[in-house]
């Protein structure tokens, strides 16, 4: 018995697209925000005017995030960037009761566990800043230049997977864009599809 089955053309995996919630655009001013950090201080985007700022959406329970932390990929990118004077803000928009929601001690423990090196770990439990920026997945990355203009938004890298073996083959978009920005070159990849877990926004 033969089954007549039409086979769809195979294509490479990719993950996010949605017109559902409008947000920031590359080339426009990155909107300011004010959020508490894991040390109890308030962090604003505008206080870093004059510096390049990376925003990283984070959920420590997400397997895509775990891939990039347990492999050391994001911690190394954080260390390399901050050494160059870049400010790296890790933002958790997980609502209370959802996966990956952390308190101050939990965030500090997460950073210590992976030897991570963000400039600060920020909480956005009501999801306002996540929605303002249209953050859909963890990770979801943004780069704001010294003049406050958004220069990159999208994925952490070019291969959507939870598999550490893919890291070596993937283009790491943030270090690439930071290097181009520093050299005064055009940014070769300004937007990409982010991939990962859905941000665990509250209702």
């Amino acid at each position: 018995m033969s089954l007549r089955i039409s086979i769809l053309a195979a294509f490479t995996a990719a993950v996010v697209s949605s017109g559902a919630f409008a947000a920031v655009t590359v080339g426009s001013a990155a909107p300011d925000f004010s959020l508490p950090d894991a040390n109890g201080k308030t962090q604003t985007l505008s206080q870093y005017k004059g510096k390049t700022v990376v925003l990283e959406w984070n959920n420590p329970g997400c397997p895509f995030v775990q891939k990039h932390y347990s492999s050391g990929n994001i911690p190394k990118q954080q260390a390399d960037a901050t050494k160059e004077g870049v400010v790296w803000l890790t933002i958790n928009s997980g609502a209370s009761g959802k996966q990956g929601h952390l308190d101050n001690a939990g965030a500090q423990a997460f950073v210590a566990q992976y030897h991570a090196a963000p400039s600060a770990y920020l909480f956005d439990g009501d999801g306002k800043v996540g929605h303002l920026y249209g953050a859909k997945t963890t990770p979801h990355m943004y780069i704001v230049d010294a003049g406050g203009t958004l220069r990159y938004m999208g994925g952490i890298d070019s291969i959507a997977s939870t598999d550490k073996d893919d890291l070596a083959k993937a283009t790491q978009y943030v270090p690439q864009a930071l290097a181009e920005l520093k050299a005064g070159k055009p940014i070769s990849v300004k937007t990409s599809e982010p991939y990962g877990c859905a941000v665990k926004y509250g209702p």
């Binding site: 769809l8 195979a10 294509f11 995996a13 993950v15 996010v16 697209s17 949605s18 859909k136 997945t137 959507a160 997977s161 939870t162 991939y195 990962g196 877990c197 859905a198």
Partner: peptide, 12 residues
């Protein structure tokens, strides 16, 4: 599915 949508990964 082969297109997972806005998040997720296709089974391989």
């Amino acid at each position: 599915w082969i297109n997972p949508g806005d998040s997720g990964l296709p089974t391989k």
